[in-house]
Amino acid sequence: MNNLYQLMTQEKNRTHNIQLIIELFEPKIRKSFLQTNPLDREDLSQEIKIKLFESIKSYDVNSTPGFFEFKEMMQKTG
């Protein structure tokens, strides 16, 4: 099974990859629904999946800093 990083670094336009990424988040989504009104859960689920889809399409893995770059950024700001 592919992990999240592998799925994000592969071609993001593949519908199959986007579906797999959303499925990886499904347990967290369901757990979060325990705090919501049962009548709103289906609508919320659809909205969350739309936002995930949009985020996946716009996210650029290559622009994410590595550990040492992140550490340097934190030292400059703090």
Rank of each mutant, 00 (worst) to 15 (best):
D60K: 06
K57C: 04
M1N: 09
K28P: 02
L7V: 05
I21A: 11
K76M: 11
N37V: 09
N17T: 02
F67K: 08
G66C: 06
L24N: 10
E54D: 10
F53I: 05
L7E: 03
F25W: 15
N2S: 08
N62D: 11
K57P: 05
K51Q: 07
D40Y: 04
K51N: 03
L20N: 12
G78L: 14
K49H: 07
S55C: 05
L34A: 14
E69T: 10
D43W: 00
P27L: 12
Q35S: 14
I22C: 15
M8D: 04
N2E: 12
N17R: 13
Q46D: 04
R14F: 06
N3P: 02
T64I: 13
K57H: 01
L4C: 08
F53S: 03
I56C: 04
D43K: 08
T36C: 15
G66Q: 09
Q46G: 09
V61S: 08
N3G: 05
Q46R: 10
K76S: 10
Q6K: 13
M8N: 01
L52W: 04
F33H: 12
K49D: 01
L52V: 00
N2G: 00
Y5G: 00
Q10F: 04
E54H: 04
L7I: 05
E69H: 06
Y5K: 09
M8L: 15
K28A: 15
R30E: 11
K71F: 12
G78C: 02
E47G: 07
N62F: 01
S55G: 09
P27E: 08
F33D: 07
R14G: 05
Q19W: 08
Q75T: 12
L4V: 05
Y59V: 00
S58V: 05
F67H: 09
K12A: 05
M8P: 00
I29D: 02
E42T: 03
L52R: 02
T64C: 08
I21P: 05
E11F: 07
Q75C: 09
L39K: 08
M1W: 10
K71D: 04
K49V: 00
N62L: 04
S45N: 12
M8V: 03
Q46H: 10
I48V: 13
T15I: 11
Y5V: 05
T15E: 14
I18R: 15
M1K: 12
E69R: 04
N62M: 06
L39G: 01
D43P: 00
N37T: 12
Q6P: 01
K76D: 11
I21M: 14
R41G: 09
F25L: 15
L39W: 03
F25N: 01
R14P: 00
E11R: 08
I18S: 07
E26D: 15
T9Q: 10
L4A: 11
H16K: 13
T36K: 14
S32M: 12
K12M: 06
F68C: 08
L24M: 14
T77R: 15
Q19A: 11
L4N: 01
N37R: 11
L52K: 03
F25H: 07
K76F: 13
S32D: 10
F70I: 02
N13V: 01
L34H: 13
L44V: 06
I22A: 11
